[in-house]
Amino acid sequence: MYIDEFREYCIAKKGVTEHTPFGPDTLVLKVMGKMFALTGLDVYEYINLKCDPEYAAELREKEPGITPGWHMNKTHWNSVKTDGTVAENLMKELIDHSYNLVVEGLPKKIKEEWLSLE
């Protein structure tokens, strides 16, 4: 998955905005203000995605292109290589998983706001 495909796939989701809070070289995608994905813009080698801890450990054992999140909480984040090591359909599933985890954890008021979005 190329960076433009990754960005378009994420930004198409309800309530998603893009930011560069860590500088101009890191793209951060948030749903309702909460981060669910990030990647390098200057060097697009991997994407960091939030993940259920048990599922994260399972993925790391099975997929050589998935490792503990680089510069992230290693329990809750995975780094997913973008060089084709990880199948594109799995990458999309993991993006969806990350997005859904963050949405599930939104405070009630913000989740209601998210639900009202078109």
Rank of each mutant, 00 (worst) to 15 (best):
F36S: 00
I66V: 14
T17D: 09
G65S: 12
E93H: 08
M32D: 03
K92I: 00
K81L: 06
E18R: 09
G33N: 13
N48E: 08
F36T: 00
Y44D: 09
N73W: 12
N78G: 04
C10K: 02
L41G: 14
L29G: 01
W70A: 09
K74Q: 13
E45W: 02
E113T: 15
S116W: 10
T85Q: 07
L106E: 04
F22I: 07
V80F: 03
T67H: 11
E88Y: 08
V86F: 04
G69E: 03
N100L: 12
C51V: 07
H71E: 09
D25H: 15
K108N: 10
G15V: 05
K108F: 08
G33F: 13
D96R: 03
K108A: 14
M72H: 13
M91H: 00
P64V: 13
L117S: 04
G105V: 09
K30Q: 08
G105Q: 10
I66Y: 03
L38V: 04
L94W: 06
C51P: 00
K34N: 07
W114N: 09
T75E: 11
G84H: 14
R7H: 11
Y55I: 04
H97Y: 04
G84N: 13
G23N: 12
L49K: 00
A57V: 15
R7A: 10
H71W: 10
E113C: 06
N78I: 11
T26V: 15
E104P: 00
I3R: 15
S98Y: 02
Y55P: 00
N48L: 11
T75Q: 11
C10W: 02
T82I: 10
L41P: 11
L106H: 04
G15A: 06
D4W: 02
L101P: 09
W114L: 12
E58T: 12
K14C: 05
P24Y: 02
M1D: 06
K108Q: 12
N89S: 10
L106Y: 05
I3K: 12
P107I: 03
L49I: 05
V31G: 05
T26N: 10
P68E: 13
E18D: 12
L115F: 00
V103Q: 10
C10E: 02
T67I: 15
P64Q: 13
K74H: 15
Y46M: 07
S79C: 01
E5Y: 06
L90T: 01
T17Y: 01
G15F: 03
G33T: 14
L115S: 05
T20Q: 15
M1R: 11
A37S: 06
C10D: 03
P107Y: 01
Y99N: 12
A57I: 15
E112R: 14
N48W: 07
P24R: 08
I66A: 05
E8W: 04
T85M: 07
V31E: 06
Y9S: 07
L106N: 05
Y2N: 09
W77C: 05
D42M: 09
F36Y: 00
E93V: 06
K111P: 01
D96Y: 02
I95E: 02
L106S: 04
